[in-house]
Each structure stands twice: as structure tokens, then as C-alpha cells.
């Protein structure tokens, strides 16, 4: 989520880009969910290639600077790199080559490539569709889509209070420095930093109770009123049809080229 929430994009120039920037938030979330469900079931490289190509095409069309988006995608690759490298050597099957006495299998290579394409296609779509929303708008879209209020509230409160926690942390660190603290490799440092984290948790808990009390005084019963102006426009229907066509094409390619179970 950190990568997704990091920097909301500014409205980019250009006709197509402007159109993409105005896509309904609810559609963005629902579409990316459907996309992830379909792509995770694909096995044919033709279909997976199309899925990734669709993401790249959307990236170009959206007029966003490509570098930061691709960088975030690469950050995700970092998480699965080890698994991908090990997969050919741990999957039994037709030997392809050996490295330091370990045999790599054709099936393992295939699986690794499959996972790499799937993950990148899905993450790219996540970064492009819901990833460009303001975090608060994302919360509203989730609420409108029927996500349980508790989860939506968690997201909205995180957005609201993360900076409060950050400044509380900074002030406590300043107060520690004012008493001649500097981090070293010793037990005193570890214990002190542990206390700092512990105190932040305790304070956060207490603050949340005070906030809740204040909210209750103003009639809070569990649901935040979501005030927004999401309106489904004709362009959104067009985007939805286009996206459905993409998903249908992915399924068709899979059926035509797929390696059946």
C-alpha cells in the first residue's frame, strides 16, 4: 500500500490523458479487481503478454511520467526475485541446464516467467488505475463499492493521522536528543528506541479513544458520512466496455493457446 499511496498523480495534459484522469474511482477499483482475477488464471504467454502490453499502453496513454511508475513496479519485483530465481531449480521436470551441479527444469523456467508476467501486469494496472487516486478518494470508492465500513474507516483514519503520528515521533526524538541521546550500538539505545515505539503505540491507542469519544459526542455510530461527488458518466460506460473487451480477449487467447491442465 505504501507504494500505491505514496504520490497521487496530478492531472496530466492531453485529451486521452485527461479522459483517463477522469475515470470513475469505483470503476478503477472494480476493474483492477476483475483484471487481477482474470490475469492470475492465465497460463498462455500470448494472453499474459497482452495483459502486460495493455498495462504499458495505458501507462503511455495516461501521460504519466513512466519512470516512477516502472520504478515502483520494479520494487515489487524485488520482493519476488528470490522465488523466481529458485523456482527453476526446485521444480521437477525436463532438465534445461545445470548450474554448479543444480539442474534447472523447463517447467520451472516456465512457471517463473508466468509468475513474473502475471505479477507485473497486475501491479502495473494497480498503479495506473486505483494507484493514481488520492487516498481519501480511494477510501470513498471502496465504501461506495460496499467494502465493510470498518475497513474503509481504517484507511481514512490512517490517511488522517499518519502525519500526526509522524510529528509526535519527531517531537519525542527531539526531546530525546535534548537529553543528549544519540543512537549507538548498545543496549541503552535499543531499550530507549523500544520505549519510544512502545510509547507511540500507547499514545496512539489513547488518542484513538479520545478521538472516538469526541466523535461519539457528535453522533458517530460506526459509519463515516462519505461526502463526495462521484457520478457515473457516459465515458465511464465506454471505458467499462473497453475493459470488458480486453478481459474477453485475454480469455479468448488463453483458450486458443492455453496449455490445458
Amino acid at each position: 500500500m505504501v507504494f500505491v499511496l505514496a504520490e497521487p498523480a496530478v492531472a496530466p495534459p492531453g485529451f486521452l490523458a485527461a479522459g483517463i484522469a477522469r475515470i470513475d474511482p469505483r470503476f478503477r477499483v472494480a476493474a483492477v479487481l476483475a483484471f487481477a482475477l482474470v490475469v492470475s488464471q492465465l497460463d498462455s504467454f500470448a494472453a499474459l503478454g497482452l495483459a502486460l502490453a495493455a498495462g504499458l499502453a495505458l501507462l503511455l496513454a495516461s501521460g504519466q511520467p513512466a519512470r516512477p511508475v516502472l520504478k515502483r513496479m520494479a520494487a515489487m519485483d524485488g520482493f519476488i526475485l528470490f522465488m523466481l530465481v529458485l523456482l527453476p531449480f526446485t521444480t521437477p521436470g525436463t532438465p534445461l541446464f545445470t548450474l554448479w551441479g543444480f539442474g534447472a527444469s523447463r517447467e520451472g523456467m516456465r512457471d517463473a516467467l508466468d509468475i513474473l508476467l502475471t505479477a507485473n501486469a497486475v501491479v502495473l494496472m494497480v498503479l495506473l488505475l486505483p494507484g493514481t487516486l488520492e487516498p481519501v478518494t480511494l477510501g470513498h470508492a471502496l465504501g461506495r463499492l460496499g467494502v465493510p465500513a470498518a475497513l474503509v474507516n481504517l484507511l481514512l483514519f490512517t490517511v488522517r493521522y499518519i502525519t500526526v503520528l509522524e510529528s509526535e515521533y519527531q517531537r519525542m526524538r527531539q526531546a530525546m536528543r535534548a537529553r543528549a541521546f544519540s543512537a549507538r550500538t548498545n543496549l541503552h539505545t535499543l531499550v530507549s528506541l523500544g520505549y519510544l515505539v512502545g510509547m507511540m503505540l500507547v499514545r496512539a491507542q489513547e488518542r484513538s479513544e479520545r478521538v472516538l469519544q469526541a466523535m461519539k459526542c457528535r453522533g458517530f455510530t460506526g459509519a463515516l458520512p462519505l461526502i463526495d461527488t462521484m457520478r457515473w458518466r457516459r465515458a465511464d460506460t465506454a471505458w467499462a466496455l473497453g475493459f470488458a473487451a480486453l478481459l474477453a480477449a485475454l480469455v479468448a487467447l488463453e483458450v486458443a493457446h492455453g496449455v490445458g491442465p
Binding site: R171, M172, A175, R179, S182, Y195, M199
Partner: peptide, 27 residues
Amino acid sequence: GLVFQDPDDQLFCPTVIEDMAFGPLNL
């Protein structure tokens, strides 16, 4: 020494004596 405006910014150890000892340990 600086005494902060909000005491909660300053007290971060679980007990008073631990918070008291924090500065002298740093010295």
C-alpha cells in the same frame, strides 16, 4: 536542559525512574 511545553513529548519510558535515568545514562 530543555523542558518541553508538552510533557507528553518528553516522557516516553514506561516508568518514572526509567525516564529519570535516561538522561544520566546518555551522559
